[in-house]
């Protein structure tokens, strides 16, 4: 067996940095899209008209029961036939956003369902609008209740962005493939790439813990 040689890989550090940034960007873009879908979808699933609820249920089932890779391919290769031309990064952000959105709806809905109706009633009795009750009474404690599930799903999204390499989006895993093709140092390349993913996840976990402490400061009931 060849001895390990990381030297060659560091020569491609620009690619690594660029890939890492794109992985981060892709994750954040998909998370943003997905969270918006999650909030709107969860609210609509709870109180929207029946056809809307069915449509959303169909979307959730479709996304959760088919391979993400195929979803990605559909967005990238099929949508252009309908006039929606996307570059690989945009396509990946949308496909992963739709994927994250389906899980977000379920998570956020579970959070909303965990808030007793008496809380909403108390808001109504103070003359708040439905939106004000949702935004100020229901949402904060609901989000706290599902924050661990939500951040866990975010981590899965981050790791899942590696799929985007399959449509040549230039994220971290794609950078890995490129460096490997130049150096033939598969083990070293993927060890480094893995290490970067691991470090990113750890950094986000620390960040989420800090954000959670700041955002959810109130003591929980006795």
């Amino acid at each position: 067996m060849q001895s390990l040689n990381f030297q060659q890989i560091w020569r491609y550090q620009d690619h690594l940095i660029d890939g890492t940034l794109h992985t981060l960007l892709l994750t954040l873009a998909a998370a943003l899209i997905g969270t918006a879908i999650g909030l709107a979808g969860a609210a609509a699933v709870r109180s929207g008209p029946r056809p809307v609820r069915w449509t959303i249920r169909g979307y959730i089932e479709l996304i959760r029961n088919t391979p993400s890779l195929i979803q990605l391919f559909i967005v990238f290769f099929v949508l252009p036939n309908f006039g929606l031309r996307l570059n690989s990064f945009e396509a990946a952000a949308i496909a992963l956003g739709l994927y994250f959105g389906a899980y977000s709806i379920e998570i956020i809905r579970a959070g909303l369902d965990s808030i007793p109706g008496s809380q909403m009633e108390a808001g109504q009795c103070l003359g708040l609008t439905r939106w004000q009750v949702f935004r100020h009474v229901v949402l904060p404690p609901a989000l706290r209740n599902v924050y661990p599930a939500f951040t866990g799903q975010f981590v899965l999204l981050l790791l899942g962005t590696s799929l985007a390499s399959q449509i040549s989006a230039e994220e971290l895993f794609h950078a890995g493939g490129f460096i490997e093709s130049r150096t033939y140092r598969s083990f070293e390349v993927y060890a480094v790439i893995c290490g970067i993913y691991f470090a990113l996840v750890m950094a986000f976990k620390l960040l989420f813990a800090a954000v959670g402490r700041l955002a959810f400061r109130w003591p929980v009931g006795r």
């Binding site: 008496s118 809380q119 009633e121 103070l126 003359g127 708040l128 904060p140 404690p141 959810f216 109130w218």
Partner: peptide, 27 residues
């Protein structure tokens, strides 16, 4: 109308995530 008719329930129904001040001043 609801603002002019206060109602208090057996279960208090305070908002757990808001301080006493914010519970009172939210509306």
């Amino acid at each position: 109308f609801r603002q002019r008719v206060g109602i208090v329930f057996q279960a208090f129904n305070l908002f757990p995530h808001l301080t006493v001040e914010r519970n009172i001043t939210l509306a």
